[in-house]
């Protein structure tokens, strides 16, 4: 087989193969609208869904602030939660726009993959943790609202409360993380394939990033645990 036989085969065969394919200009014009894109709305579902949770949190927290007006211990727990919720909502909007930016397909493949990996490892990862915390805030504030006993609130089984809250956080975070892992693995495989023999230090970078990820997860767990312990101490 000659060197250019593959190219020849490719050109001749393709000319015949796509002879019957028809995409007219009207069809192309129709495809320019985002609305016709199947599945496009699903992609930002997470960001919008948790955005709605944070809005619900703001309303609930405001109602609880009014309901527990005469209970300073609870007020001092609710105010940081409100600040955290507003912060998460603003950060979520920023992540939403960043997500749109990283899908700029006119960059080189390598740059695009690096950008997407950065997005999933940094802002999206932080957002995942915050979103999971906001789900916990929603549950605890619903309880606070329902069980409001003239401005006081009692936790009957504290150990159970801490355990269930931690488990709920891990479950919410874990399921979200697992859903994004598959795409992340694919991106990593592409990047390592692209960098094979090009960047000798890429593996080192990957290892360092992995170490930081674990450190970040540990810090988040520690912070959540201390938040719950703080709530319990304040409620005593």
């Amino acid at each position: 087989m000659k060197k250019d036989e593959l190219i020849h085969m490719w050109q001749e065969g393709n000319d015949r193969m796509f002879m019957d394919e028809q995409t007219d200009k009207d069809m192309i014009t129709k495809y320019l609208s985002e609305k016709t894109l199947k599945g496009n709305r699903k992609i930002n579902f997470n960001l919008v869904f948790y955005g709605a949770i944070q809005l619900a949190n703001i309303i609930l927290l405001s109602m609880n602030l009014a309901g527990y007006m005469n209970n300073p211990a609870i007020i001092w727990i609710l105010i940081p939660q409100l600040i955290l919720t507003i912060g998460t909502l603003v950060f979520g909007i920023d992540v939403f726009y960043k997500f749109r930016e990283i899908n700029n397909y006119s960059e080189s493949l390598q740059k695009l993959i690096q950008k997407q990996l950065w997005f999933y490892r940094r802002p999206y990862e932080l957002w995942l943790v915050l979103a999971s915390i906001s789900a916990i805030i929603l549950i605890s504030n619903l309880n606070l609202y329902i069980d409001n006993d003239n401005g006081s609130y009692v936790i009957n089984n504290k150990a159970m409360f801490v355990g269930v809250t931690l488990l709920a956080f891990l479950f919410i975070y874990g399921t979200q993380k697992a859903a994004s892992l598959l795409g992340l693995r694919k991106l990593k495989a592409y990047l390592s394939d692209l960098q094979q023999g090009v960047l000798d230090f890429s593996e080192g970078i990957e290892r360092t990033k992995k170490r930081y990820l674990w450190l970040w997860v540990a810090v988040c767990l520690l912070l959540t645990a201390s938040l719950i312990i703080g709530i319990l101490t304040a409620l005593k």
Binding site: L37, G39, N40, I43, N103, Y105, S106, E107, S108, L109, L112, I113, Q116, L187, Y190
Partner: peptide, 11 residues
């Protein structure tokens, strides 16, 4: 470039 990136990394 755009078409290949979409095929590899798109929705």
């Amino acid at each position: 470039r755009v078409a290949l990136n979409t095929a590899m990394l798109g929705l």
